[in-house]
């Protein structure tokens, strides 16, 4: 167990260095959290980054999906940092890049300023444009409809339904509604479009088109993260992500149910 030491204070230059290091660590952590990394990974990365410089031994970090708390002790000077993190959007590439950055930072002697610059670059990183994302969501919807056993026409139509729904969600993002409203609207749109296609006589199986359209929107990643957090004993993060998964899935289902009830 590390013991806290008490001193008269540290020099100004050391203090500046310490603050920069802490900022870098917390910034890295918040980029990871916003990309949907598991909290144990975030805590681990922050600890590694802090311990790699200035001979710091006492680092304690606590991360939950909406906040990061870090305390470090450097020659008796105790500094804490609390950062709130906003809602996250899954970005596996950013998780990979930050992970790689933290390995590089720990094993080499990159300066903290350089590190801050790299992290900001990673945060700006966008692998795919919005239109590409819409295309991907469409193809996911189409292939899932095929996997559940529909014919080829329905697959193509389902891809259109999935794409249009995703475009609609991106449109809704600018109004900053809660995730549940967005999911409800998405479920409603998917089901309504599928119903219209059936009524117009293009599609044959409404159920499969709706299932395909729902697949890109179901919170499977939140469920996976919740379980992985629970394994490491991070029960608060696990519960919060599990609740996120359940409520998002529920609002999506209710959106679809509204249409099924009306027709």
């Amino acid at each position: 167990m590390e013991e806290l030491s008490i001193s008269e204070g540290i020099s100004v230059t050391d203090n500046v260095k310490l603050r920069k290091l802490l900022t870098l660590a917390v910034l890295t952590g918040s980029v990871m959290l916003q990309s949907g990394a598991e909290t144990y990974r975030v805590e681990d990365t922050i600890k590694r980054i802090c311990k790699s410089r200035l001979g710091i031994k006492f680092v304690h970090c606590f991360a939950i999906p909406s906040a990061i708390f870090v305390s470090i002790d450097y020659e008796g000077e105790l500094i804490s940092y609390l950062k709130r993190v906003n809602s996250y959007q899954m970005n596996l590439n950013k998780i990979h890049l930050t992970n790689k950055f933290s390995r590089d930072f720990v094993s080499s002697d990159i300066s903290t300023e350089e590190g801050l610059r790299i992290i900001e670059e990673i945060d700006q990183n966008k692998s795919f444009s919005k239109n590409q994302m819409i295309l991907f969501a469409g193809i996911v919807a189409g292939t899932f409809t095929g996997m559940f056993g529909s014919n080829f026409t329905d697959m193509i139509l389902s891809a259109f339904v999935g794409g249009i729904t995703m475009k609609f969600i991106y449109y809704l993002y600018q109004f900053k509604f809660s995730a549940f409203i967005n999911n409800y609207a998405a479920g409603f749109t998917t089901a309504a479009l599928a119903y219209i296609l059936i009524k117009l006589g293009f599609a044959t199986n409404m159920d499969l088109i709706i299932i395909g359209g729902m697949m890109p929107l179901l919170p499977g990643y939140a469920l996976t993260n919740a379980i992985r957090d629970a394994i490491t004993g991070e029960y608060i993060s696990s519960l919060s992500r599990g609740l996120d998964a359940i409520l998002c899935g529920l609002s999506l289902a209710i959106g679809v149910a509204t249409v099924l009830r009306i027709i």
Binding site: L92, F136, V140, T143
Partner: peptide, 20 residues
């Protein structure tokens, strides 16, 4: 093949690194 395509597209949808 369908599951392969859908998972590949799903990973791209979550902005996975292109090589993976």
């Amino acid at each position: 093949i369908l599951a392969f395509i859908s998972t590949l597209m799903f990973s791209a949808f979550f902005s996975a690194p292109k090589k993976s």
